[in-house]
Amino acid sequence: MTGRRYAVSDVMTRKVVAVKAKASFKDIVRTLRQWGVTALPVLDDERRVVGVVSEADLLPKEEARGADPAPGARAADGSAAAKAVAVTADRLMTAPAVTVAGSATLALAARIMARNGIKRLPVVDAAGVLTGIVSRSDLLKVFLRDDEEIAEEVRRDVVGWLFVTPPESLRIEVHDGVVTLTGRVRDSTLVPVVARLVRGVEGVVDVDCALMGPLRRPDLDPDLPDIAEFPPA
């Protein structure tokens, strides 16, 4: 198929707020509050993503207020006890960071988020340099595609690809992202293939496939002759 698939770089936010590895605790809190986010990528001097610091990484300090530091808590082991006494991003952050490439599909980004239970992913290039951020809401942008745009892609890149001569009776309607397919096709084995490919078009919410195979001719009675013979009048 020739249909274009959206990549993470098509929907990500390119203006990203991040902090350096030596950013102070208060600077992190201030930045989170100022930008209204819950997590920040942590960068080294080459803007490579080395971790992510979130509100959850900061809370151990509040939880441990008034308590004596645990023995060995200053070790950078990523434990809650260590984070309770940490004062810079490189000691507070969760590392290594879970990231995604800009060329990745939206489906892959969604799977990474679901598997790791996170809402935002730093987007990096081949060198690990930060290029953007993608959130759950960004991944949903494709569902804002215009119905006619979706219908045209289905006609061009699904029907036009599967059938040398598209069936005249095949009708495609799209309403609020739901694609309805009606009509008949010569090869009924292609019906589930059409439905599956349409479902893969970016922005499709659901598919109602009512396609049918060709009309079947009634079987002739084998006992009847092919040519009826009548006696002369």
Rank of each mutant, 00 (worst) to 15 (best):
D57G: 12
E46P: 07
V178N: 03
E55L: 10
E55C: 11
A81L: 08
V164C: 03
A86C: 12
A82E: 00
L197P: 09
S103N: 14
A151P: 11
M12D: 11
P96M: 10
V42C: 06
S103D: 11
V42L: 06
V98T: 12
I133K: 02
W35N: 15
T31L: 14
T88D: 10
D90S: 15
E168A: 15
E153Q: 11
K61N: 04
V98Q: 02
A127Y: 04
R196F: 06
V205I: 14
A101E: 02
L139K: 09
D176S: 15
V37A: 05
T94G: 14
S137Q: 08
R199N: 04
I172E: 05
D57P: 14
V53E: 00
D147T: 08
V16G: 10
T189K: 08
A86Y: 01
M1V: 14
V179D: 04
E168I: 14
A233I: 11
A97R: 09
P167V: 14
V37I: 14
A126F: 00
W161V: 14
R184E: 09
V17H: 07
I28D: 01
R145M: 07
G177W: 02
S135L: 00
K20I: 11
V87N: 11
V201T: 14
V100W: 01
D223N: 09
T189P: 10
A195M: 00
D57K: 09
S24A: 13
E229P: 10
A64L: 04
V129R: 15
D208T: 12
V178F: 01
A73L: 08
I28Q: 03
A76Y: 00
L43I: 05
S169A: 13
D187G: 13
V191E: 00
L106V: 11
K15L: 07
V134C: 02
D176E: 15
V42N: 03
A89M: 12
V174F: 04
G213C: 09
P218K: 10
S54D: 06
M93I: 05
V179W: 01
L215C: 08
K22I: 12
L108W: 00
L197Y: 03
P71V: 03
N116S: 11
P232L: 08
P60F: 02
G66M: 00
D187S: 13
A73Y: 01
D187M: 06
L106K: 10
R14D: 07
R48G: 11
V87Q: 13
L43Y: 00
R184K: 15
V123A: 03
D146M: 07
V11S: 13
L58H: 05
T88M: 09
P225G: 03
R186A: 15
R199H: 05
V29A: 12
R120N: 04
R145I: 02
N116M: 04
L224C: 06
A210M: 13
A7F: 07
L130T: 06
V194N: 05
E202M: 05
V8C: 09
R65M: 05
P41L: 01
R184L: 12
D157V: 04
L170H: 10
V207Q: 02
A81P: 13
G200N: 13
E63C: 13
V191R: 04
L58D: 01
K20C: 10
